[in-house]
């Protein structure tokens, strides 16, 4: 297939990666956009979700409200936001044209996995564990911070990982409102019938999504308290066995 050869050529040509409209620059722009959107959601929504999980209440409401982020197409939301006077299409620092609108749209898109996982993770810490914590005389905050949160962490991180990968891949829509990121190459490629360029950019997006997924999975594993203790015990066993 000629198109694959052309795509390969595009990806292996150094000049396509360099410069202010090269792949590296666009990749960093898109990463910045994705990470910022994720951070905004994490700071604003995650504490609420975790605390509701601790209370074991309001989860139905929180999860369903956040699911609006799933139901409303991100691009439709973006299209509405850019037609409004605010946030509109004003250039927003490194986030480019309509940067604020793009960040809002992406942050809302990140809501569902973060809120759902955050709530469920804390809520589903076994009742026996919660009761023992209370029985030891822990206050609500101590119970949350010392018992529930550590146990819930892997699932919380898994929500963040899911959101990051989704947001990263979706951030290509910024190009549709003349914003930054690898989406620029994809739309350009399609408009100029230079499909190799569009496919090359899509491949880069996919590869980075895969890498983010791997990093997220590694972080997730590192935060697993049960796995941590198993490893420690494993080390201990080895030492005792050696004696």
């Amino acid at each position: 297939m000629r198109i694959f050869n052309q795509t390969w050529d595009y990806l292996t040509t150094a000049s396509n990666w360099q410069g202010s409209d090269g792949i590296w620059t666009l990749l960093v722009q898109q990463l910045l956009l994705s990470v910022t959107a994720l951070t905004v959601t994490m700071v604003l929504a995650l504490p609420v979700a975790l605390w509701l999980g601790h209370l074991g209440r309001g989860g139905f409401l929180a999860i369903n409200i956040s699911n609006i982020g799933r139901a409303v197409p991100t691009f439709a939301l973006l299209a509405i936001l850019v037609t409004l006077d605010r946030p509109g299409v004003a250039t927003f620092g490194p986030y480019g044209r309509a940067g604020l609108a793009t960040l809002i749209a992406l942050s809302l898109f990140a809501l569902p996995p973060i809120v759902t996982n955050g709530y469920v993770a804390v809520d589903e810490v076994p009742a026996a564990v919660k009761e023992s914590a209370r029985g030891m005389g822990m206050t609500g905050w101590q119970q949350f911070s010392r018992v529930e949160l550590p146990l819930a962490l892997p699932l919380v991180v898994s929500g963040l990982r899911l959101a990051l990968v989704q947001v990263w891949a979706t951030a290509t829509i910024a190009a549709l409102v003349a914003g930054p990121g690898l989406g620029t190459l994809i739309t350009e490629g399609f408009y100029r019938t230079d499909y190799a360029k569009g496919i090359a950019a899509a491949i880069v997006v996919a590869v980075v999504a895969f890498l983010l997924e791997l990093i997220g999975a590694a972080v997730e594993r590192a935060t697993d308290p049960t796995r941590r203790s198993v490893t420690r015990k494993g080390v201990l066993d080895v030492t005792t066995g050696g004696r």
Partner: peptide
């Protein structure tokens, strides 16, 4: 050059708003 599309609403708006 703002790649906002050929005869698209975004292009119209951009010119109407003086961007």
């Amino acid at each position: 050059i703002l790649p906002l599309g050929y005869a698209s609403q975004q292009t119209y708006d951009s010119v109407l708003h003086g961007e």
